[in-house]
């Protein structure tokens, strides 16, 4: 094959690949996305206060009265805990590796960025925490009950209505180890270490999402939560995501080396990581340095 023919064949192949998305009718949701209003700043995370987050989210889950009483009690305890933190104290309790948010929190109020990879048979959502949601759109039903167990991301199937992805999720459990409460806690995060529980969903919760592009830089997730055990009516909550502007690849948000705040005498302290500055390379064939004179 001549070089010219090879180039022509390669160009044709690339054209076929490029047109694959168009031919399958899949929307182009490429790029990285982040929650509007839950984007971080250089100092540590969300800019908005907890009240702002709650207002922005317009969260008003129709909790059953008995659940609301339980939520109110939890919220009161959370506020006491926040007061202790505001005094610089370790309020006790538990520290949770929040590199795992789980569903639905990962969609509702997390600072994670994510990618969406739509294909005809499956759409995959990959988060910077390395949480992954698999949404099967090949026409299958949910996993049979005798093969199903709850996970922090649930069991998701979906279908396309035009350019809108409709996701149906069941079998969700909290990613947080819990012995005091059962169910999936949905919380709002904001302010300085602020958090507030807004509802707790049962293991029977059923989630329906409609994800669509609002414009070239915004996606929307209209979520409906159906949970007759804990809610008096379906709970509708919307989230909007925007394109990440300063980075164009997925990177890993991890919790390695998380012991940066050892508690001493009931108070958090600061323990920066060791220097990662590489030591000067030793020249080949040079004599080893004396330990007492080696550069630090």
């Amino acid at each position: 094959m001549t070089l010219r023919r090879f180039a022509l064949a390669a160009a044709t192949l690339l054209g076929c690949v490029a047109s694959l998305g168009a031919s399958t009718g899949m929307p182009d949701w490429s790029g990285q996305w982040e929650n509007v209003g839950a984007t971080p700043d250089a100092s540590g995370g969300f800019n908005q206060s907890l009240d702002q987050v709650l207002t922005r989210m317009q969260w008003g889950p129709p909790n059953r009265p008995e659940l609301q009483a339980r939520v109110d009690k939890i919220v009161a305890s959370e506020r006491k805990r926040l007061e202790a933190i505001s005094r610089g104290e370790d309020p006790g309790g538990v520290d949770v590796k929040a590199c795992t948010f789980g569903f639905p929190l990962v969609m509702l109020d997390s600072p994670l960025m994510f990618e969406i990879l739509p294909t005809p048979k499956e759409t995959t959502l990959i988060f910077s925490s390395r949480e992954i949601r698999h949404v099967y759109t090949d026409g299958r039903a949910h996993t049979p009950k005798d093969e199903l167990w709850a996970t922090p991301w649930g069991d998701s199937i979906g279908h396309w209505e035009g350019q809108t992805l409709v996701i149906d999720t069941i079998a969700v459990k909290s990613p947080f180890a819990s012995s005091e409460s059962e169910g999936v806690a949905v919380m709002a995060f904001g302010d300085v270490e602020g958090e507030q529980t807004v509802t707790i969903l049962s293991s029977q919760a059923h989630f329906i999402e409609r994800i669509r592009m609002l414009d070239k830089d915004h996606l929307e997730d209209q979520m409906t939560v159906i949970d007759p055990n804990n809610l008096t009516a379906p709970w509708h909550v919307n989230r909007t995501y925007e394109r990440v502007t300063h980075i164009h690849r997925m990177v890993y948000e991890d919790c390695e080396g998380e012991e940066r705040n050892p508690v001493v005498n009931g108070r958090f302290t600061l323990a920066p990581p060791p220097s990662a500055t590489p030591k000067p390379a030793t020249a080949p064939n040079s004599a080893p340095s004396s330990p007492t004179t080696a550069p630090q």
Binding site: G45, G93, V94, D95, A177, V192, R260, N261
Partner: peptide, 24 residues
Amino acid sequence: RVQNFALITVAVLLTASPAPAHHS
């Protein structure tokens, strides 16, 4: 207003299982 994302402490709702890590 800032919030530590890397390790959010979620205490009240959760069991007091010990965890070695502290972020705050």
